[in-house]
Simulated scan of single mutants.
Amino acid sequence: MASQQSQSIQTLLEAEKEAAKVVQQARQYRVQKLKDARTQATKEIEEYRKFKEEEFNAFEASHAGTTQTAQQVTDKETEVKRAEIAEQYKDHKDAVVKKLLDRVILVTPELHRNLKKRD
């Protein structure tokens, strides 16, 4: 009976060693799966980043012409406005100068309304 007990104990110890090996293998498997998942996720993120960069570059390229066109339109409008202002200046220059000179030269002296005469 003692030999049967020691054999049972030996069997249990071997089973425990086998279970420890299985647990160790499971841990290694889990660690490897986590590493693989992390590597795969990094790869997918990099691919997505490249895709979005290409998409942005295409968008930027397609709208670059629009910016140049808008700049040209704005330049033309500015030139038209400048020409209008120059024309108005040329038309009204003499009248404005005459009004300024009249105000400066033709002064009519009068007493200020707040100044009272002393009697």
Rank of each mutant, 00 (worst) to 15 (best):
Q4P: 00
Q4M: 12
Q4L: 15
Q5A: 09
I9A: 10
Q10N: 09
T11I: 15
L12K: 06
E14V: 14
A15F: 02
A15G: 08
E16P: 01
E16V: 14
E16W: 03
K17H: 05
E18T: 09
A19T: 06
A19V: 08
A26Q: 12
R27S: 10
Q28I: 07
Q28C: 03
Y29G: 11
Y29W: 01
R30F: 04
K33Y: 03
L34V: 14
K35V: 11
K35Q: 10
D36A: 14
D36E: 09
A37P: 00
T39Y: 01
T39D: 10
Q40M: 03
A41F: 01
K43Y: 01
I45N: 14
E46A: 11
E47H: 00
E47K: 07
E47A: 09
Y48C: 06
R49E: 14
R49N: 14
R49H: 07
K50S: 05
K50M: 10
F51R: 11
F51W: 07
E53K: 03
N57D: 07
A58W: 06
E60P: 00
A61G: 02
S62M: 12
A64S: 07
A64K: 10
A64Q: 13
G65H: 04
G65N: 09
T67A: 15
T67E: 15
A70G: 07
Q71H: 03
Q72G: 04
K76N: 03
K76L: 10
T78D: 01
V80N: 00
K81Q: 05
I85T: 08
E87F: 06
Q88T: 08
Q88R: 11
Y89I: 12
K90P: 05
K93Q: 06
K93D: 04
A95N: 03
A95H: 01
A95M: 02
V96N: 01
V96G: 01
V97A: 02
K98V: 04
L100H: 05
L100Q: 03
L101K: 09
L101S: 09
L101A: 08
L101F: 08
D102F: 09
V104G: 03
I105K: 12
T108I: 12
P109M: 02
P109H: 06
E110C: 07
L111V: 13
L111M: 13
H112E: 08
